[in-house]
Computed example of a mutant assay.
Amino acid sequence: MNIPPRLRAHWRTLAGAAVGAVLGAAYAHFIGCRTGTCPLTGNVWTAAGFFGFTGAIVGLPGPRKPGGQPEQPAS
């Protein structure tokens, strides 16, 4: 399976967005506002979008170390 380098570099961001969207939709469906007046949890699609965006932000890769080598754990 040949994965494009751009997708390979951002797999954590995509996974965070997917997990956030699923959890947000589940929260809005099972726990969210029943009257529909809450702007975030009143609609499943809005909650999925917001939580998916939040999950993508959490999954963003951090700054890279100079030289491109990952830090080795201390022994």
Rank of each mutant, 00 (worst) to 15 (best):
C38Y: 02
I3H: 05
K65A: 14
Q72A: 14
T46N: 08
T37F: 07
T37H: 10
P66H: 07
A28G: 10
P61Y: 03
N43L: 04
A21C: 11
N2D: 10
F53G: 11
R8S: 13
H29V: 04
P5M: 04
A56E: 05
F30V: 11
P5V: 10
V58S: 09
Q72E: 13
R64L: 01
G52A: 11
F30E: 07
G36E: 13
I57N: 00
G55W: 01
N43Y: 12
G59N: 02
A26G: 06
L60F: 10
G68L: 09
R8P: 01
R34F: 09
C33Y: 01
V44R: 06
P39W: 06
H29A: 11
G20E: 00
K65G: 04
P73R: 05
I31V: 15
T46P: 03
P73N: 06
R12T: 15
R34A: 14
P4F: 15
G36I: 06
G67P: 11
G59P: 04
G24C: 05
N2I: 10
H29G: 08
G36S: 13
A9Q: 04
N43S: 07
T37Y: 12
G52Q: 02
A18E: 00
A28D: 12
I3D: 00
T35L: 12
I31S: 12
V19T: 13
A47S: 15
T13P: 03
F51D: 00
N2T: 08
M1S: 09
A28R: 01
T35F: 00
G59V: 01
N43C: 14
A17D: 05
A21T: 07
S75W: 06
R8K: 15
P66R: 08
N2G: 08
F30L: 15
Q69F: 15
L40H: 05
A56Y: 09
G59M: 04
I3E: 01
W11Q: 13
V19P: 06
A28L: 10
A18W: 12
F30N: 12
A28P: 14
A18S: 05
A17G: 15
P5A: 07
A17R: 08
A15F: 14
T54W: 14
T13F: 04
R8L: 11
I3Q: 02
P63D: 07
A21Q: 09
G59K: 07
G49N: 08
M1D: 06
H10D: 02
R34W: 09
P66E: 08
L40D: 07
A48F: 01
T13A: 12
A17S: 12
G67Q: 02
T41C: 02
M1P: 06
F53L: 15
P39F: 14
V44S: 02
P39E: 00
A17P: 06
H29M: 01
F51T: 12
Y27N: 10
V44C: 00
G52P: 07
I57R: 05
T35E: 05
A25C: 15
A21H: 06
G32Q: 14
P63K: 07
C33F: 02
R6W: 11
L14V: 13
A26Y: 01
L14M: 13
G42D: 07
F53C: 10
L23P: 01
G20R: 03
C38F: 04
I3G: 05
P61N: 14
C33I: 12
A26D: 00
R34T: 13
